[in-house]
Design a protein around this nucleic acid. Sequence first.
DNA 1: GTCTTATGCCAACACCATTGACCTTAACTC
DNA 2: GAGTTAAGGTCAATGGTGTTGGCATAAGAC
Lengths: 235, 235
Amino acid sequence: MAKNVVPEEARRRRRPTRRGTVLSEKLIVETALRMVREHGSAGLSARRLGAALGADPSTLYRYFEGMDGLTLAIGEELIGRALAGWAPTGRWRDDLRALGLRIHGAYLAHPQAALLTASRVTGRPREIAADEAILGILRGAGFGDEDAVRIYHAYIDQSLAFAALDAGPLALTDKARASDEERWESTYARLPADDHPNIAATARLLAARMPHSAYPVALEMLLDTAERQLADAGA
Amino acid sequence: MAKNVVPEEARRRRRPTRRGTVLSEKLIVETALRMVREHGSAGLSARRLGAALGADPSTLYRYFEGMDGLTLAIGEELIGRALAGWAPTGRWRDDLRALGLRIHGAYLAHPQAALLTASRVTGRPREIAADEAILGILRGAGFGDEDAVRIYHAYIDQSLAFAALDAGPLALTDKARASDEERWESTYARLPADDHPNIAATARLLAARMPHSAYPVALEMLLDTAERQLADAGA
DNA sequence: GTCTTATGCCAACACCATTGACCTTAACTC
DNA sequence: GAGTTAAGGTCAATGGTGTTGGCATAAGAC
């Protein structure tokens, strides 16, 4: 039976699988992440992950409560990777920009996990550490508590929101993604100027820009406004 | 065979199914939306949709190119609902705010569908109409093409991104959502001030603000920056 | 060496999307 | 009205998925 998942720290016996690998939560999560990146949008399945590990699919249920539990564990890992090695410089705007791009990037490196994870409040240690760091940057920069919380909220949600949005296409099959991108050329660029003067006038610019993430621009706009508010309050 | 999907307007024969219902693209999309709302996004399957319509699952492939095509059609429907009855006032900032809140709201009315469709480019008429309208507002306000496209991109993606993010919790069961929200009180508010001084100092403000969408704030910040850029360019 | 049981494996179940072949009948032609 | 065509239904089958109950065996305790 697969009901009882033993927590990692309580595991004592490590019986190798038929093909000789010795499993662990860490190994499984890492293998899953590698599969998601390499096989890309084809995605993660218990069967394939089992095959990659040299283990029967059902063995995974000894480590996680279903595929959902596995994805949550992956999410934890992503936050950790975003924060790993990061250190504040003391320049609040630079720090927020760097942190935002790190979070966004870490999620996008693993789109399927990002889609499932981005909107959940886990309350786990690494997420809390990130929140504490962001609030610290804002309050250290001189924002009042009220402003700091308001900006923090917009900042973190915007980062996660764009991560989820941008992960969407990456999580699709190659075919579906290609047809989405191509649509900017095939459909939009060919609209008659009479009916759609504004799209027609900017078609070239749209095709060039739309396949890329708007997150950097949106982030910069948010930081702009924050900086302006700080200056106004200080004046 | 299911290869040839006949476009809706070219359909002529309407043979009723075995159980007597007469199918149409519209009926299928509406039924799918209802199912998604009632049973969650995981509850939408070709088999179940077929059953709900009183038709064989394979019949759907006469109307859509697989479930993916159906998903795109649902997204198109949501955009249409956002635009229905909207009319520009001529004040660009008010118009963009109103439109953004409408789109955000229309998606949130169907959280599960929002999760599925927010990141997809459909290239269908109503989506194109929305894009044309937004670009028109920006260019009409006096933004150059380059700026208009940049702001348009950040604006539409921000709206959809927040729609998807905010839809996440709504798509959960009541119990899971409640426990997510409660975490701001139960976990964050109780962190010792020594380890997490910034969270501790703002715990009350966080608990009050985090359960609500940051989209209005983020939108306003984006509009702020756009307005300032317009003023700078005009000066 | 013996016992316990954690942990891996196997087989099976119920679901899923999708497709090719078939058949019914609506709609068009004369 | 009779005849023809093919749209648009149905059926059956394929190969995928997550998940579970039962079983076997080796790791570790004594």
